[in-house]
Design a protein around this nucleic acid. Structure first.
Lengths: 158, 158
DNA sequence: GAGAAGTAGTTGAATGTTCAATCAAAGCGT
DNA sequence: ACGCTTTGATTGAACATTCAACTACTTCTC
């Protein structure tokens, strides 16, 4: 609607608008549905769960705070806070990293690992219900590709 | 990894895992990038902006709080808080709805409309930069379709 | 038309995330 | 060795969103 003469304010065409709004609505509904799912059925939130998964995939069930932050694309302080909550629940433990006295190593406790094993299928059930099973293979594949491109565009820009 | 005998805990195969993680990373980076974009270049956050857009599209630049909530898939209290902030910035005004004394009508002020007109191209530039321009037409199209399916799956489930 | 149930909206506390400030340790340049 | 910059991590305040509780009005039902 606004007309301009300076710059080149490339508008969105009708179709692009539609896709953008679909994205916004879908993303917000999905994140809400998944958050509720975790809240109702698991003992950790989605972001806490992601931390546990990364730890479980790492040798020794252990990772540096900063690697956790980088791998999950979380801010450092978010990791600090999240790990503090997980520690309070008894699912992880902190220890000093050897070789770098600034570093903190975060390790899955046996209890944390056991909880993860028990609850992973429930998490997956949520992911299926709200995303994977809502799409056929080709749709899921192209969704993933598109999101990877978006992630790249965001990353490039700092 | 965990083996089970009860229920039918359908795991994710390797490819589904990849797409899921791409989605999670992309979605979180995109929402963060766009939030920063608004914060740096516009006078309203993304959710505040969405409210202004809906109002501007409505006859009389005016909508009931509950229609705003439903249309944006926001909780009612989120709309209350968001509109309060917009009111404090002078972009919207509240008035009683006629015909239903419980209702509140939310209306764009001239200043709010003018701001929206000025800043919409900047918002669009962000959407382009982090999403639309990162994809070709076909990718955008299938992203939108997938997200619409996801939204439907979430909505159906309450 | 009275009581029950539902709808519109607000409120304030709790939660999780970000941001800016801070601190300590490492690395770098000279 | 000495400052300078960078990195690893934490802290606490600020902020947005949710949740539960609540008020006020409307609609339904008998």
């Amino acid at each position: 609607m606004p007309e301009e003469t300076t710059g080149e304010p490339r508008w969105l065409d009708a179709d692009q608008q539609v896709q953008w709004r679909r994205y916004i609505e879908g993303a917000s509904r999905l994140s809400e549905a998944l958050a509720r799912w975790h809240d109702d059925h698991l003992s950790v939130s989605l972001s806490e769960y992601e931390v546990l998964v990364r730890l479980s995939e790492s040798p020794g069930h252990s990772m540096r705070m900063s690697r956790l932050a980088d791998g999950l694309a979380y801010s450092r302080s978010r990791v600090t806070h999240t790990v503090r909550r997980l520690e309070a629940k008894g699912f992880v433990a902190r220890s000093e990293a050897e070789g770098d006295r600034r570093g903190i190593e975060c390790t899955l406790t046996p209890n944390g690992f056991e909880t993860l094993e028990q609850e992973a299928p429930i998490h997956v059930e949520g992911v299926r219900r709200y995303m994977v099973d809502a799409l056929d293979d080709a749709e899921l594949e192209s969704l993933g590709r598109a999101m990877a491109s978006i992630a790249r565009a965001c990353r490039e820009d700092e």
